[in-house]
Design a protein around this nucleic acid. Structure first.
Length: 590
RNA sequence: GCCCACGUAGCUCAGUCGGUAGAGCACGUCUUUGGUAAAGACGAGGUCAUGGGUUCAAGUCCCAUCGUGGGCUCCA
């Protein structure tokens, strides 16, 4: 996402670095074509059409030339040109010519309708002149020569359109000082260390098997343990908050998906059908039609509403191969899905409750930094506009009441209804979409859903889809990265590892483990032949919250020597006292 | 799906100019029975992703397929 010159303090620096990089690339490839090169969060990029693919070695050569250009301290010179002058100046640059035509028609460089301001300008430094609005630094010498780095090469479609040529994009980063650059690179390294794919392997939480298929997750015992704890907690919370739990099958007949409309407009995201006894069946990409069938199994009265059906529904979606990513973008996943069916007079209360509940659940998992996105009616939509307005108002009032920061995405709703998405920032400040609360004016119509009102007449209920964690897979990925694998006690797959110092302590270790287990704690015993230090190291690397060391002293005192994963040595604590402490901590979910 | 890179032991990786496969960790056996982040010795472990091709000879070069990664596009 290109940044805005008005609120990005690095805009001039990064944009100038992009120009310098473009000059360096053109020096190496004089026949190369340049596209666009904006500053972005953390750095900049420039897109090129070059005669051959770039390799990482090229980046070094480009960096060298950039350093030379920076040291040359060439001024950035601004000038305004007419469209025809610009066309002449960039006559060999096809992409620039397309931009100039767009600018002449009041479009910005991304082909979007920009301001009516049709001034065409360029910035020139040294031998390189680029079509550009600026602003820039005064001269190339203001770029700190030791605070930039070209980071990667990627493919990118011209103007983001997959039907247009694939260009080569070079990403770089630049900062005001080497210290800033180092801090940025350190942060990247930290993010890499807590990458859920890496931790998933190191902590033995999950895997993906080539034989099973891409985007299909195998939950290992420790990962599954965390999921079971999370699911149990959420299921109980749903039951406590007015939801009814339901179960539905994984496949349904073609007719169901024709009625829902999925076969019409979602089929490219569905797994292929299977033929059973001359009938086509599809693996479900969504749970909604099933919950609707439960609703329709009776004639409903206005007195029955609201109905709130919740299910951890496993769905399969055929995602394009290039988009798959660890746990966060997969082909099979389990949604903590629920559908609320209600009367018009209940809409506002239901939305407010759903948002409230969502915040409660997410906070329970230690996530507290939220932002909401309210998406309103798009140009193409189904349903009654008056109902849309009611729905949008209900959503807006709910976010207002809960005092959450929110942005409005005008016209950003799905064709079937407006929605609120809740995004959370994790411990590294990265944003993840989790909860969604969406109205649906499409399915009640398609499935002819109704309830009998007070007036004895049939009415169409409001329908709301909502998922709080989103999918168990993605949420697990976010949790792993948020906690860097060091889960709070209540979620830790192994809460305490008992470490006998010698083999003669194993018997006492086992009886202690039994006591902890009977008290509801999840414990392991390291009976390997390693030395105590090695056992501690292993438990530490597995991020086990408590290490309980047992030797002669502890055995004779009915105690354990407690070490935390943060490295603190709490000394000997009586077994019963430790149990109480751990139970208390787990119950607090901190 | 598209561009680029990558795929060698369970894991992390090395492998030069094409000449019969290497390390550390993990694993097994033995010695050691220890006090807060790795004791020592020995051993086993590989159809170099898969399938073709070039070559006297392929982990290495070429092609295809599958998978992974960084992006792009997509995520009604």
């Amino acid at each position: 996402m290109p940044t805005d010159p008005n609120n990005d303090p690095y805009y001039r620096l990064r944009h100038s670095a992009a120009h310098v990089m473009a000059q360096a690339v053109l020096e190496i490839f004089p026949e190369g074509k340049i596209a666009i090169g904006p500053p972005i969060e953390g750095g900049f990029y420039y897109d090129f059409d070059l005669p051959r693919p770039l390799s990482p070695d090229d980046l070094e050569a480009i960096e060298q030339r950039m350093r030379r250009i920076i040291k040359g301290d060439h001024s950035f010179v601004y000038r305004v040109v007419s469209a025809n002058e610009a066309r002449d100046l960039f006559k060999d640059q096809a992409y620039k010519l397309e931009l100039i035509d767009g600018l002449a028609q009041g479009q910005d460089e991304y082909g979007e309708r920009g301001s009516s301001d049709t001034v065409i300008s360029t910035y020139k430094h040294d031998t390189f002149e680029d079509l550009c609005r600026g602003p820039h630094l005064k001269s190339t010498g203001q770029i700190p020569v030791d605070a930039f780095k070209l980071t990667s090469i990627a493919g990118a479609y011209w103007r983001g359109d997959e039907h247009r040529p694939m260009l080569q994009r070079i990403y770089g980063t630049v900062w005001n000082s080497k210290d800033e650059l180092d801090a940025y690179l350190w942060k990247l390294e930290e993010a890499r260390k807590r990458d859920h794919r890496r931790l998933g392997k190191e902590l033995d939480l999950f895997s993906v098997s080539e034989d099973v298929g891409p985007g299909l997750i195998l939950w290992h015992p420790k990962g599954a343990r965390i999921r079971v704890i999370a699911e149990d907690f959420c299921r109980q919370a749903h039951l406590d908050n007015g939801y009814e739990w339901v179960f539905s099958p994984h496949v349904g007949r073609a007719h169901l998906w024709e009625t829902s409309g999925h076969l019409g407009f979602y089929s490219e995201n569905m797994f292929a059908s299977m033929n059973v006894e001359e009938e086509e069946y599809y693996v479900k990409p969504m749970n909604c039609p099933f919950h609707i069938q439960i609703y329709k199994s009776h004639l409903r009265s206005y007195r029955d509403l609201p109905l709130r059906y919740a299910e951890n529904g496993t769905v399969y979606r055929f995602e394009r191969s290039g988009v798959l990513h660890g746990l966060t973008r997969v082909r099979g996943f389990t949604q903590d899905d629920a559908h609320i069916f209600c009367r018009p007079d209940q809409v506002e209360d239901e939305i407010s409750r759903a948002l409230d509940f969502s915040l409660y659940i997410l906070r329970s998992f230690g996530l507290s930094d939220f932002k909401a996105y309210l998406s309103t009616r798009p140009e193409k939509y189904v349903g009654d506009p008056a109902k849309w307005d009611t729905a949008v108002e209900a959503l807006r009032r709910a976010v207002d009441q809960h005092a959450i920061l929110y942005e409005v995405d005008e016209g950003g709703g799905a064709f079937y209804g407006p929605k609120i998405d809740l995004k959370v920032n994790d411990a590294l400040g990265r944003e993840w979409q989790l909860s969604t609360i969406q109205f649906d004016f499409n399915l009640p119509e398609r499935f002819s859903m109704e309830y009998i009102g007070e007036d004895g007449q049939p009415h169409q209920p409001y329908m709301v889809h909502r998922a709080l964690l989103g999918s168990m897979e993605r949420f697990f990925g976010v949790l792993i990265e948020h906690y860097a694998g060091a889960f709070p006690l209540w979620l830790s797959p192994v809460q305490a590892m008992i470490i006998p110092i010698t083999d003669r302590h194993i018997e006492y270790a086992e009886s202690t483990a039994d006591r902890l287990q009977a008290a509801g704690l999840r414990v392991g015993i390291d009976t390997s032949k390693d030395r105590m230090q090695a056992k501690i190291r292993r438990a530490q690397l597995q991020k086990v919250p408590y290490m309980l060391i047992i030797g002669d002293k502890e055995q004779s005192a009915d105690a354990v020597a407690v070490r935390t994963r943060s490295g603190a040595d709490l000394g000997a604590i009586a077994v019963d006292a430790f149990i109480e402490r751990a139970q208390h901590e787990a119950a607090a979910r901190t």
